[in-house]
Design a protein around this nucleic acid. Structure first.
Lengths: 199, 199
DNA sequence: GTCTATATTCCGATAGAC
DNA sequence: GTCTATCGGAATATAGAC
């Protein structure tokens, strides 16, 4: 990938994440990348092609992280929750906050490029559901899918904009503290309510 | 409020919720409402004015429901979770699904009209945090704020598009079943992870 | 108060020089 | 591969008749 393409993808990643895909014009992207409109069409064909390139740019990274985290999972729900959150944190630490925010945004709004996303994400969910199922005897598959979906949504939303999370918390928590809170909440969601556990 | 204004607000509520504020043009709204572009500018001044009118249209209803639900809360976390979810369900049953979806969308993306929203929502949060604090000795205020914020976000996202939730669940669950799953997850989030509870 | 018509700006996409 | 210039269309917003 040429240097111009990289600059365009980086600028689009940030702008799409901050303002939404529909609200960002190609002219804004090209200005931020220091090129012109024609370059975008030459390299990516269209606005949707640019979005696909942005999404694809870190999918491999996420897949590798998830693959590395999954085999270590064995016993408790907390372990499963950490294996679920940790790869996303790794992407965050690799400078992927804008990408996470964008993916979370697309997932929340159900707008565009969802076919590209589900291609790599939902396959991982199957593995997680299988592990979660062994830890949750008697809980319907429907409920487990629900819990995992909400956990994923939560993780992307929180890690995609940590400053916003801090603002909503009304705190000056460190990133590690926010991640700890997030891991706790994901653990809670995956484990189910306390009444069901004490039965 | 005249009949034309009501039709415009209803059409905008549905379209903004389904496609996002930025992706819906005033022309689309006026066509759905059976009027013309000028009427929107006459009644609401601008696109943002229309959005404000849409948000304000059900805020009173939500406030009344929350007010009615709060005093009944006393003991368990599950009770608190139900008091948290029930008013939103009431709005849903009153035909407010599109409104819920729109608010959840704005909250998730952090786009526009957040000042209008926080004005009525965040004040309620304070009352809930106070109740939650008594139920959670030793848990930092920051973590409680985090849990409540995520619970609210979850509730709006799920109830704002139940069909989408069903699709993500890969199930044909009834609305009551989805609400039950949601109440369980909210209870889990507010209660915190099981490890902290067994300490 | 509601309409038609229009002013103005900006969008995505393309053509063609270099 | 990267630029300038421009096309066709759609957006918000306004003007003015009724």
């Amino acid at each position: 990938m040429g240097e111009t393409e990289q600059r365009l993808v980086a600028a689009a990643e940030r702008l799409f994440a901050e303002h939404g895909v529909g609200a960002v014009s190609l002219r804004t992207v090209m200005q931020a990348a220091g090129t012109n409109v024609a370059a975008i069409h030459y390299h990516f064909g269209s606005k949707e092609g640019l979005l696909d390139a942005v999404l694809r740019s870190r999918l491999d990274q996420v897949a590798a992280e998830r693959q590395a985290a999954l085999p270590a999972v064995d016993v408790t729900v907390a372990d499963l929750a950490h294996a679920f959150v940790r790869p996303v944190v790794a992407v965050l630490e690799a400078g992927g906050e804008h990408w996470i925010r964008l993916v979370g945004r697309l997932l929340a709004t159900g707008d565009d490029g969802l076919a590209t996303l589900s291609e790599s994400f939902l396959r991982r969910n199957a593995a997680f559901v299988a592990l979660l199922e062994r830890l949750s005897p008697g809980v319907p598959r429907r409920t487990l899918n629900f819990r995992l979906t909400q956990a994923m949504h939560l993780t992307l939303t929180v890690l995609g904009d940590i400053d916003r999370t801090r603002r909503l918390q009304a705190s000056d928590a460190t990133t590690e503290e926010v991640v700890a809170d997030l891991a706790d909440v994901v653990t809670s969601v995956l484990a189910g309510p306390p009444t069901a556990r004490s039965t």
